[in-house]
Design a protein around this nucleic acid. Sequence first.
DNA 1: GTTAGTAAGTGAGTTGGACTCATTAAATGG
DNA 2: CCATTTAATGAGTCCAACTCACTTACTAAC
Lengths: 240, 240
Amino acid sequence: MKAASRPRRERLPRDERVGQIMTAARKIFREKGYEASSTAEIAVAAGVVEGTLYRYFPTKRDLLIKVVEEFYANIFSDYEAQLRGVRGTWNRLRFMIWKHLSVMHGDPDMCRLIVHELRPWPQYRQSSVFTLNQRYTQSTLAVVREGIANGEFRDDMPLRIVRDMIFGGAEHHTWAHLRDEGRFSPDEAADGITNMIYQGLARGGQGNSEAVGGPVKRLERAVRRLEGLTGPRRRNRKRA
Amino acid sequence: MKAASRPRRERLPRDERVGQIMTAARKIFREKGYEASSTAEIAVAAGVVEGTLYRYFPTKRDLLIKVVEEFYANIFSDYEAQLRGVRGTWNRLRFMIWKHLSVMHGDPDMCRLIVHELRPWPQYRQSSVFTLNQRYTQSTLAVVREGIANGEFRDDMPLRIVRDMIFGGAEHHTWAHLRDEGRFSPDEAADGITNMIYQGLARGGQGNSEAVGGPVKRLERAVRRLEGLTGPRRRNRKRA
DNA sequence: GTTAGTAAGTGAGTTGGACTCATTAAATGG
DNA sequence: CCATTTAATGAGTCCAACTCACTTACTAAC
């Protein structure tokens, strides 16, 4: 009677066990959300007992954070590299916005975890994920700065507002989809947001007395820039 | 020993008791957030025993919802009335955005409850608060519709995008303040967002779009195409 | 080999908070 | 003054995160 009940002990190296637990946690969290997932359930899925989770992750929340960190790492890889292949302010802006929306579109469950379950947490701004996210939004703002530097964009709009409207707009736009209660098209949304931001930042304030000179001057500048690009010039300066 | 322990029973009419409980709940929720508030604590603050809460509110969450509903009712009163006193599309838009930001600025704790604790909840979109919020955003979109109707705004931008950028932008902008980890100025933010939206929606040619907007738009498209061609082209746009 | 040290793994707890229910008693109305 | 209704109670139940004293597999020194 004792015979069969013994050999239930499989020791693995730390990293391997951590990997198993994170894989299980990612799966359960994605399926049911953070609150609705229990540590007992995650432990079963990982093939360990509940106490083992706590050897590697001090709290359930830390487990979520690690899972999200891993996700960010995947997103980042080849993000800036791809951007380097896109030319022109409108296109570069559109690319960044489109990429962001595509992530939300492609992995709504993980994004819901981040947006609805991790970010509202009181200590979010002290977490590593907050820092990762800052880096993320900065790479989009860099494109806006380029636009200001080359004269396409006005320089009197606080960058913070621009950032908030891009990412806030994208987030609100994707809400229903994150809850699996609606669709959106990353292409159409990216066009809409990009156009609003691009025109909103364009120099020469359309809609006032410069209504004619504004766009024409802007296009003249763009043409000059394009003429420059057809030559040996590769990249524009960062700041004026 | 039995003598003193008897007369602890004060019966109140339903509405009065409900009011007491909601007042206590609002206070505690605001101070500590939803998760960190316990029903026991709320009961003590309301001067009742825990079980009494559950006579009037089926769950702790329902209690939060009622508190938030009451808050919305206060916000709404004289909202549309005030708008009627503001003339001009820019001014009306700016008023609505400013008002929204002012609410976030003036009662960050309640707004944090709504944004960070109620909205992420899975059944939020089936709740009364969601409906209230829709009504709220619609009154701002009505101003945008007026602008389209009188020719100030273009009509080819999806209203949903405009809504998402206004409210998403406002929300992102106020995040730090909601957590008491940063400030913002409702005036400056309202100016920024309003200007972005206003210029972003402004018609190209202001009344003579055939003469100016047409060619300009065509040139803009050409410029964007050329910008794309100068680097490895990543994606085609949807718009013709 | 043997053995001591280390770290992986266990599972029976503890804790705390949301929610329930059988019971008590104040108000109400016939 | 009795019957009915319903506000109020508080002792419990249930469930999930987290703890801890202990057990056992692996490793390296001798």
